[in-house]
Design a protein around this nucleic acid. Sequence first.
DNA 1: TTGTACGCGTTATCAG
DNA 2: CTGATAACGCGTACAA
Lengths: 340, 340
Amino acid sequence: MGTKTTIYDIAKALNITAATVSRALNNNPKISNETRQLVLEMASKMNYEQNKLALALKSGKSFNVGVIVPRIDRNFFSLVIRGIEEELNKFGYHVIICQTHEDPQKEKENIETLLNTQVDGILLCTTSNVNTTSLNNLLKKMNIPLVFFDRRMEMKRVNSVVINDFEGGYKATKHLLDQGCRRIAHLAGNFLMEIYKERFLGYKQALLDAGISFSEDYVIRTKSSLVDGSRALKDLLAINPPPDAIFSSSDFAALGAIQELKKLNIKIPDDFCVVGFSNEPFTRFMELPISTIDQSPLEMGRMAAKVFLEQTNSNQNIKMEKKVILDPVLKIRKSSLKKG
Amino acid sequence: MGTKTTIYDIAKALNITAATVSRALNNNPKISNETRQLVLEMASKMNYEQNKLALALKSGKSFNVGVIVPRIDRNFFSLVIRGIEEELNKFGYHVIICQTHEDPQKEKENIETLLNTQVDGILLCTTSNVNTTSLNNLLKKMNIPLVFFDRRMEMKRVNSVVINDFEGGYKATKHLLDQGCRRIAHLAGNFLMEIYKERFLGYKQALLDAGISFSEDYVIRTKSSLVDGSRALKDLLAINPPPDAIFSSSDFAALGAIQELKKLNIKIPDDFCVVGFSNEPFTRFMELPISTIDQSPLEMGRMAAKVFLEQTNSNQNIKMEKKVILDPVLKIRKSSLKKG
DNA sequence: TTGTACGCGTTATCAG
DNA sequence: CTGATAACGCGTACAA
């Protein structure tokens, strides 16, 4: 009971050799139905279970895939992971979770230990915004599929699944323009990260396309937090003329701004419109639901998994790259929907 | 480049044997400093990295731990997982994630494949409310540590980390009584699950301790959803006399009820108080923040990990059981806080 | 159809 | 201090 039964154990019990047992268990045609039955019965009788570890060592395939995210308890990432897990699970893969907490050093460590564990692939939402050459070299040396999701690094021959953040910024801003807003401010993220830069560029382009002049003063750098959002709003209202709308790269900052607007008795959406980004659950549940951009995280996870599967199943010699770009979906809610 | 360097490769390069290389790499005292240096240099030069798979096969320890949850994209579970990952990561363990989607069959499958993968332990939030004997047998046969968290099964010699759900129900109800509410209803979960039954029993006991008669009519079975919450509220208001407060086993149902109350122009908290359960993020962000019970998910995850570590590090012969019961924390917010 | 022998990469035991 | 050898559990050429 203490130790698990191996094919050797059941071979001994049947007075045959382990090789034969292995063949019987793996539906190898080169075996008689008679012995196959015998083996199968004895196997279930002895509660035999294949040791995937030994198989992995032998075959070089572990059926484990590493997934690296900044933080698992962010709704967006947990949904991506769910998508990944569900898709990979169909094909017998397991998902190993790692967190970086936005620390590039931790990201590197995670990759290294995952490689030691002999994962069959790595799905990575990178937090290394700067072109960390050491990480770059590490990734290039990998001889297993690598798939970036949500955030990617510019590299040759790399797979990625992202949303069109530019389009997201554009759609949100265009929507605000359509609502009649003319002085639209932007709560921006860290421009060292491509996603935030793209959202900003989309915002800017929408303004230009509408013939609205763009002002640096209306762009406030904020972290993804309530306090930063409310602080940014105060700064914006101090400008002359003050803005009449905000497109925020973060739902949390958007909420902070909204809370501040309410304190000041500024009517939303009549006098001020707000659109956030990410479709955090709370944006939907508010008394004043917040308009936002949905990033289809579940779909993103599934796609990332599919890209990995394609890569891993394709001929190893053909190193191809696959870039999937998902379309952002604008969720129009009360915070930006004027009646008239 | 295509294939990874092994200790055998570096042994050949140094004209020594693989065993010596292994000793040098593992700080085995029985080796000269000279050769140790030589090996270390050559190892880094050849970009050697230990193959944990081979080590796992040899040592019988994979440093992988399986974590099974109903759904990873529930805020509560993602926080528990985060706690688990962070604690286990300190000691070199990796976390493999599995989801059951509340399907007992899937739970069983997950356990079986995890065992095949040779995980060193399983941390399980069970979804098998009924005493599934087949699962029970499976778990008993395991010769690796098993730790239940949040939801447990009654078994001999088993470890668990849960919160005191009875106390949670009691605290929430007691708080409503303290606010002056006298006709307190309960939105209940599935009583086949211990956690929901306990919350209900805590609610009932608080009423009895306050000398308030308990009525079955005030207990409505609801799923954890907005629509169920609003439907339940309508049913409750049809009763004579209608309740003046709700303790809900679910934040989502609580929100559904609140939305319905607002539609009916019933003032919260003046004329009606509501307390939920789980401390979902949105409860804090609402214009009318919702009182709720916090389950300390991060702490629960860390504790579950610690219990596993204790078990796995202790003498295998001593099979002990450890039950950790965390105290629920009442978060009092506007939805239940009367001014006067 | 079955048995033999070997290798996956590592560590541990036993000689030397 | 170092080398040779076995073992972890499995699959698979090769030989019988």
